[in-house]
Design a protein around this nucleic acid. Structure first.
Lengths: 194, 194, 194, 194
DNA sequence: CATGAATGAGGCTTCATTCAT
DNA sequence: GATGAATGAAGCCTCATTCAT
């Protein structure tokens, strides 16, 4: 049924990002997204199953592509320490240059219904796997300690990055995320204790 | 005018926690909360301004009390390192012994509308201040490095704790959060890098 | 959930009959029925599960009561021949004095969706059973032949009555159905052949 | 301007019969009929004014042809009694050998909108005239009584046949309609009364 | 002739809130 | 203070029809 490709498919997803970023999740009706995409309401249903599908596809297209990019980029970096820095850098750069997308994925889509959040969770899992691989590599290379649970470390890395981006959005993106790359990398590596 | 105290005030808040934990945010109608609290729908509006007010009050009563407890408890611990460990311990113990509340505050209330989340943010700010004080103390005591931005560290600490609790809930609270106290404290202090 | 009794329950059903009779099935929106019943749209859902439930309940209340009346009335008539005449008389009198109801049950509700028609069919089955009993009684009393399949006769009786009422409605109820009681009874008993 | 003839005209009507018989009136969208007919949606509008026109044309083509056949066939039968039997036989045989068509005309098209049903009624009128002629002939030939209203008898005959076919479809065409020809003819002629 | 992508009007239902009792 | 019946606004989705190619 739903086409899932084409010019209008992209136009609708991009319109959804803009509308949700501007008006918030609860004020982003299908008709508003359609108007922003310059298509009729019904056209949305030629490309998506339903409204949920628009939101899931939005996350999948934008974050899915990002995750693939990260995977590729990290493949070209040998050192796990550098991989960690690169991961943080890519994450921050991607969202900083797409602040509307950041608002949508970090804030607004988290208010969506269970089905959407479930699908988002599945997509995010791939990102968590990437983090896991960096940690595992670091241990193997002898660059990281080997006396911590990798899942604990993964939750620290993801939780910190996530909270950092959320804080940045809450402060209206007023400062640059890039300035956080080094400090956070360093904290992860050395901790706060002397 | 909302009463904000009394037996039924508490009954309604506790009912809200149970209903939201069981049915999820989007399936927790005022009438369902009223039924669970054994009061009439209209009675809720004698104690609260509106539904948002119930949710905000819920967070304020439950987490506000917790935050005060943490402040008090940390006052009795001299070392910042011990304060950090104690903060994590209290956080995990509180939510582990109130898993319904954990579900509500960590997962469900995050789907609420902007007004509720804004108020929750304000309440959380006090908690972030507590974390800030621990960090500041650690630097002053010479137990923590002094070359990191305290706000960065605060976001690491809060983000990691938050993500850890969320993960634990997503895994149906199957393991014990307490086992995470030491590993996380250690990671914060020493980092992952050799 | 749905109350299924009370003053407004009846008001809504009666409003539905009037609206459907006047505007036709496809132009009888819930809001129009609510307005006719002088209640809010949402009030309908305090008394009925959904729109289908209104229509099924309408048929059940109006025809169900009628069928019970017929059963009772026939119990007081010993002769099967008289029972047959009485059945036809009651059927015609009931619909003739409720011509709006006749329009709704004979014409409009037959355009409804499968679920409604299925429920209507179940209710009608009771009526067909009443006819079956008259036929069986007639055979037992030696008043009817015993060489026909009772189901064939039942279909003749019901089909003829039904077609007669439908024709009468299509001719805008211009003539009296009561004048058809004797002719039809006689046809059923004696047939058309010499 | 609608073409109303040609290979695709027939293909569309036949596709409509199959689709409506399989999916039911309310699930028979224009696009589904087009797909079944292996034409584009828009092509239907080259051959028909609109969707209603498809349904009316369907009834007209299928039942109109049948009615003409009946007229012709009865012309070759002198006795009104035999004509009556032949009418029933042709009716049952035609629908029994076209059970999909029977489902469409007896059940599904009756859910259509007022305009379609009005047109169907006009087409059926010719069939009712055929019945009228048989009755008139029977009276003239002295084979039928002359003390009944011919319209009453016509409604009996048509109503009974119609109800018989509907019952047969509702019982999933499990028995043979042909077995009903004699019993029904006999009932019409002799009635049920001794 | 034929296509099929695009259109856009229209309705059922939910649920936070009120207010007469 | 407490009740709970009543309110009514608001949005997702379907599908007959059109028209540029």
């Amino acid at each position: 049924m739903a086409k899932r490709t084409g010019e209008k498919y992209d136009a609708i997803i991009d319109a959804a990002v803009r509308v949700i970023a501007e008006y918030g999740y609860h004020q982003s009706q299908v008709s508003k997204i359609a108007r922003e995409a310059k298509v009729a309401d019904g056209t949305i249903y030629l490309y998506f199953e339903n409204k949920d599908d628009v939101l899931i596809s939005l996350f999948n297209e934008k974050m899915g592509a990002f995750i693939s990019d990260v995977e590729t980029a990290l493949g070209e970096v040998p050192s796990a320490v550098e991989q960690l820095r690169e991961l943080i850098r890519l994450h921050f750069e991607y969202l900083e240059s797409n602040s509307q997308l950041a608002i949508v994925t970090q804030i607004e889509l988290r208010q969506s219904n269970p089905e959407v959040r479930k699908q988002i969770g599945l997509i995010l899992k791939k990102y968590l796997n990437v983090i896991d691989q960096v940690i595992q590599r670091g241990v193997e290379q002898g660059l990281f300690h080997d006396d911590f649970d990798p899942r604990t470390a993964r939750r620290m890395i993801f939780g910190t990055i996530d909270e950092t981006v959320t804080s940045w959005i809450m402060k209206d993106c007023k400062y640059s995320l890039k300035d956080q790359i080094e400090p956070i990398t360093k904290l992860f590596l050395k901790g706060i204790g002397k």
